[in-house]
């Protein structure tokens, strides 16, 4: 459908006003909201993610596209709720206890929302039990943790251990990231995945949940 292709193309260009207008047109034309989301908005963000990974575009381009995505998503959200269309998955996000840095975590949240996930953002300086309690309460499938300091990285392990101790490993997967964190460290502490940036976080979480 040309309209959905237009949404996708304008999203890739980061034109939030056009994406909002076109999404409005698609809604008025009775295109199913889920189709607008999947074949317009998410399709556009998927291309943006691929271009970013190929180094064809830079982070500000991705974030402009994300802003355009949100412009369309805000119009669709009430319809998706009304039709009881579930999110792709639910992710609890936060910067670990002792860490106030949240820019990276925010970017991961933006990318995940852009991919159709529901995000429970706990903010920064989040104690281990708050991560796990929130995931259980919200019935989230993934806990995403960020740390910027080598001295706070160890708090990621506390969350992973707590998920294990409470016997939640089948229900809740853990993913870690942040400037000093490596995939080796993720393996060492028993996290299910490591993500280098927001785009790879989307890929890893989709893999964890068997969505790709």
């Amino acid at each position: 459908m040309d309209l959905l292709k237009d949404i996708s193309n304008n999203l890739q260009r980061g034109d939030d006003e056009k994406v909002a207008a076109l999404t409005g047109q698609a809604i008025a034309a009775k295109v199913p909201p889920k189709q607008i989301l999947d074949d317009g908005l998410i399709a556009g963000m998927t291309v943006v993610g691929m271009k970013f990974k190929a180094h064809d575009i830079f982070l500000p381009d991705v974030l402009l596209a994300a802003k355009a995505m949100y412009a369309g998503l805000n119009l669709l959200k009430p319809l998706l709720v009304k039709e009881d269309i579930p999110a792709v998955g639910k992710v609890v996000l936060g910067s670990v206890e002792g860490d106030l840095h949240d820019i990276g975590k925010n970017l991961v949240g933006i990318m995940l929302k852009g991919a159709g996930f529901e995000i429970i953002d706990l903010g920064n300086d989040v104690p281990p039990e708050r991560f796990v309690d929130a995931a259980v309460k919200e019935n989230a499938s993934v806990i995403g943790m960020s740390a910027l300091l080598t001295t706070t990285m160890s708090n990621m392990k506390k969350v992973v251990d707590m998920v294990n101790e409470r016997g939640l490993t089948d229900k809740i997967k853990t993913i870690v990231g942040g400037a000093p964190v490596t995939s080796e460290y993720a393996g060492e502490i028993g996290a299910d995945a490591y993500a280098f940036d927001g785009i790879s976080a989307v890929d890893r979480i989709k893999q964890l949940l068997g969505l790709s």
Binding site: G14, D16, L59, P60, D61, L63, L64, A66, K67, Y70, A71, I103, N106, L107, I110
Partner: peptide, 9 residues
């Protein structure tokens, strides 16, 4: 406000 690019920069 959703100005992610400006916020990140």
């Amino acid at each position: 406000e959703g100005d992610f690019a400006l916020a990140a920069m």
